[in-house]
């Protein structure tokens, strides 16, 4: 049994100790001197309301800021998943800031509005 496993974060390979969580792997093993490139400080996901960058706060399952796509499943708490060889991990960064209303494109043409 190997002491390390290879996981793929946004398709980039990382070799990390076996037995640790995905979130701990990314936070603890992907540093860079160049702060703006530092993968450990890059958002794990964007918040679904205001699209702000979020990363783990608690690393133990209560803050829900570690959510990532793991092996095709979205919104998985990566701090509760143990790294496995070949695991595909993706940051969820494509959220736009949330609005209450549909855009004009979504609404049917002959709808009534408040002004009718």
């Amino acid at each position: 049994m190997s002491d390390t496993v290879k996981i793929y974060v946004d398709e980039k390979m990382m070799e990390v100790p076996a037995g640790i969580s995905v979130a701990a792997a990314i936070l603890g093993h992907s540093h860079s001197h160049n702060h703006s490139n530092d993968q450990s400080r890059k958002a794990f996901h964007n918040n679904s309301m205001d699209a702000s960058p979020r990363a783990p706060y608690c690393l133990m399952g209560v803050c829900f800021e570690c959510m990532m796509e793991i092996d095709g499943e979205a919104n998985v708490q990566s701090c509760l998943v143990t790294v496995q060889d070949g695991m595909q991990v993706k940051r969820q960064l494509n959220t736009e800031a949330f609005h209450y209303k549909n855009t004009e494109d979504d609404l049917p043409e002959n709808r009534r509005t408040n002004n009718d």
Binding site: P17, I20, S21, A24, A25, L27, G28, H29, C58
Partner: peptide, 15 residues
Amino acid sequence: MTAGAAEIILRSGGH
């Protein structure tokens, strides 16, 4: 992050 989170990183062999 919390102290617990920092601790977990250390216990995961990380920086």
